[in-house]
């Protein structure tokens, strides 16, 4: 008894093939699914299988592991496959997809113009949330465009919120313009007042 050193060296871990890991994405045991999703890091052939399951996986911890693995790829295919979930009615899925997209500065920018033109204001709100954390030099420009032109006050308020850490005196006119566009929206007025303090 007492402090002991690990008795024998670790046995060689069996190598599980990507094909087996992809099969385990449908395992009834959630921990097996989570481990398989993590184990597929860097396996390009697993991207489609993971994307197929993002929208149907019911356990948030498993879905988060899938997103963690997918986001590393930062390819157009993954970005497009995740962006469709910005329109989801499931708030957890919507925000998890946005968090993943915000870590993909290579592929997401090409999608942004289309997302900013989406007819659904909720998609544009989620896009502003992605831009808040996307490390890309154009993020601030896109947010400014939303504040200046977007027809929906919730989108404008979210964009102002996203821009907050970067706001400077040069943005005063932009923000005051937003209030003039929506004179009857008390929440937007509140957001601008708070941001200009």
């Amino acid at each position: 008894m007492g402090l002991v050193r690990k008795a024998e060296p670790e046995p060689e871990l069996p190598v599980v093939s990507p094909e087996d890991l992809i099969r385990q994405l449908d395992d009834p045991d959630r921990e097996a699914r989570r481990a398989a999703a993590l184990g597929l890091e860097g396996v390009a052939d697993a991207v489609e299988a993971l994307l197929d399951r993002i929208g149907v996986e019911q356990v948030p911890a498993v879905r988060d592991a899938m997103l963690t693995t997918l986001a590393v790829h930062d390819t157009d295919r993954v970005a497009a496959g995740l962006a469709v979930h910005l329109a989801s009615d499931d708030a957890g899925l919507r925000t998890a997809a946005a968090e993943a997209l915000a870590t993909m500065p290579i592929s997401v920018p090409a999608l942004v113009p289309r997302l900013l033109e989406d007819p659904d204001p909720d998609v544009r709100v989620m896009t502003a949330i992605v831009l808040a954390d996307l490390p890309h030099p154009e993020s601030l420009t896109w947010l400014a465009v939303l504040i200046k032109d977007d027809p929906h006050p919730n989108v404008v308020a979210t964009a102002i919120d996203a821009l907050l850490p970067s706001l400077g005196p040069e943005h005063r006119e932009l923000l005051e313009g937003a209030v003039r566009r929506f004179p009857d929206d008390p929440f937007l007025r509140f957001t601008v007042e708070a941001a200009l303090r």
Binding site: A157, D161, L164, F190, T191, E193, R197
Partner: peptide, 12 residues
């Protein structure tokens, strides 16, 4: 989750 709201409420 809105930073402006947090900041405003905290300041007040």
């Amino acid at each position: 989750d809105a930073a402006t709201v947090r900041m405003y409420h905290c300041t007040m």
